[in-house]
């Protein structure tokens, strides 16, 4: 018979079980190792070709002049969509995605990946 609250006996046991959610800052889940998080830039491999900035869909990656006279990319994580196209476009594998995902900052412009 179809009764209101028919599933109740099946779910009432959850009261005494461990909840499915975790209290984030105290307990953490480990992200998969292939997560596309904050990128890592290997300065020594960069040839200043600008392929990353050309293909960046959100304008997060821009070529900035550096002290040695060359232009190299900077990544503004405020704009980044973590699609990793820059890493794919790079001919020298100078950009690497890491699994770091805790990217909150207090001020705009602080979350920039530089050399």
């Amino acid at each position: 018979m179809r009764m209101p609250g028919k599933m109740l006996p099946k779910i009432v046991g959850f009261v005494f079980k461990k909840p499915a959610t975790v209290l984030y800052p105290k307990e953490r889940l480990t992200p998969p190792k292939d997560l596309r998080g904050k990128m890592k830039f290997h300065k020594d491999r960069c040839i200043s070709c600008g392929a990353c900035a050309r293909d960046c869909p959100s304008g997060a990656c821009t070529m900035q002049p550096k002290s040695d006279g060359k232009k190299r990319p900077e990544f503004d994580l405020d704009f980044c969509t973590f699609c990793a196209q820059c890493a794919e476009s790079c001919p020298k594998d100078a950009i690497e995605m890491t699994a770091e995902f805790e990217l909150a900052h207090y001020r705009r412009g602080e979350a920039v990946v530089k050399e």
Binding site: R54, D55, C56, P57, S58, T81, C83, Q85, S89
Partner: peptide
């Protein structure tokens, strides 16, 4: 936008 950029848009 280029075809590659449009992928993500």
């Amino acid at each position: 936008r280029s075809y590659i950029q449009n992928l993500y848009l």
